[in-house]
């Protein structure tokens, strides 16, 4: 049955099957969440009573940094530790065609047919910030289905992707040797999101300089809050164990300090904010599509109404419609 035609009863059944280990049902539910609308809302309701039992690690960094290859080797370490791992790999949607090429699985052959690994490629579908619209809810779905560890690989748009910090528990930022300028330019953002830095392709020239740049950028932080720096050559599997150890130690530290609990609180806040944002945006698109703005636009064009006043009128209309939609 097409995703758009699913009833609340259907999604409940899917959720039940997914929780019992049916990967087809799990995969279908992610599609439902991606598509949004009533069916997605009904999945969200079904998820609400489930606790968040998993741990989530985000991997971000510019295109070409070697994120997918790194994730592939990390999956091996993570599997040995957690037993089962899920990965959400986000790639950009083309703004022109709305299509996407999702190629992360090409690098992940070692785990391609494992029953202990669930890999899902997601297109960003217009979302900025490195994640897809449904990444957060997909993460909660995976947790509800008992996946103890979830990796999220971001788009990699070439700048720091703040969304990953509000979605994951440990953030790994991947750099390459010779990226000193990037470290300088993005210093503030990097410091804000990174829990661990990886210098991947550590066999390439410029390793020491990048490490120095990074260390000096981090020097102002108190020692206990200073992100670890791990060197890897992901294509050869080198450094993966070190990286996994760094992740485990960060996890332990924030769990003990109570920071994990406050991070989770922030994540909920960001998710709720994002959810309202998305619904308002959809409502706003509908408002314009319905022609409700047309007379005001004409008035503005004729000089009879100023922009701010038109905005006030439409914002009131938007709120009225949003309330009606909730009540209806």
């Amino acid at each position: 049955m097409a995703v758009s035609q699913l009833s609340a009863q259907d999604t409940d059944q899917l959720l039940e099957r997914a929780r019992a280990g049916d990967r087809g049902a799990l995969a279908r539910l992610i599609s439902v969440l991606e598509r949004g609308g009533d069916a997605a809302a009904s999945v969200e309701r079904g998820l609400s009573s489930r606790g968040a039992g998993g741990y989530t690690v985000g991997i971000t960094g510019a295109p070409g940094a070697g994120k997918s290859t790194l994730v592939n080797t990390l999956l091996g370490e993570a599997l040995a530790d957690a037993g089962r791992v899920a990965l959400l790999a986000v790639d950009p949607t083309s703004p022109l065609s709305r299509g996407a090429l999702l190629g992360d699985r090409v690098r992940m052959h070692s785990h391609a047919a494992s029953s202990q690994v669930f890999i899902r490629s997601m297109a960003s579908r217009g979302q900025l910030g490195g994640l897809a619209v449904a990444t957060r809810s997909a993460r909660r779905l995976l947790e509800a289905c008992g996946w103890p560890l979830i990796l999220i690989e971001t788009v990699g748009v070439g700048q720091v992707e703040l969304d990953v910090a509000s979605t994951t528990d440990t953030v790994v930022v991947v750099l390459n040797p010779g990226w000193g300028d990037e470290v300088q330019a993005n210093k503030a953002g990097l410091m804000e999101v990174a829990d661990i830095f990886v210098i991947n392709k550590a066999d390439k020239a410029g390793l020491q300089a990048t490490r120095r740049d990074l260390e000096s950028a981090l020097a102002s932080l108190p020692a206990e809050r200073r992100p670890a720096i791990v060197e890897t050559v992901a294509s050869e599997g080198r450094g993966a164990a070190d990286l996994w150890a760094a992740i485990a130690s960060h996890r332990e530290a924030i769990t003990l300090s109570g920071e994990l609990a406050s991070r989770r609180q922030q994540q909920l806040r960001a998710e709720l904010h994002g959810l309202i944002d998305a619904r308002l945006e959809a409502e706003l698109d509908q408002l314009f599509a319905s022609g409700a703005a047309d007379t005001h636009l004409e008035a503005v064009a004729a000089g009879a109404l100023d922009m701010a006043a038109a905005g006030d009128v439409l914002l009131r209309e938007l709120c009225r419609r949003a309330s009606a939609a909730i009540a209806g």
Binding site: S97, G99, L102, V106
Partner: peptide
């Protein structure tokens, strides 16, 4: 992709 599809590539696969 240019026609609007999301294309998931998995390379050489068994």
């Amino acid at each position: 992709r240019d026609a609007g599809f999301e294309v998931i590539m998995i390379g050489m696969a068994r």
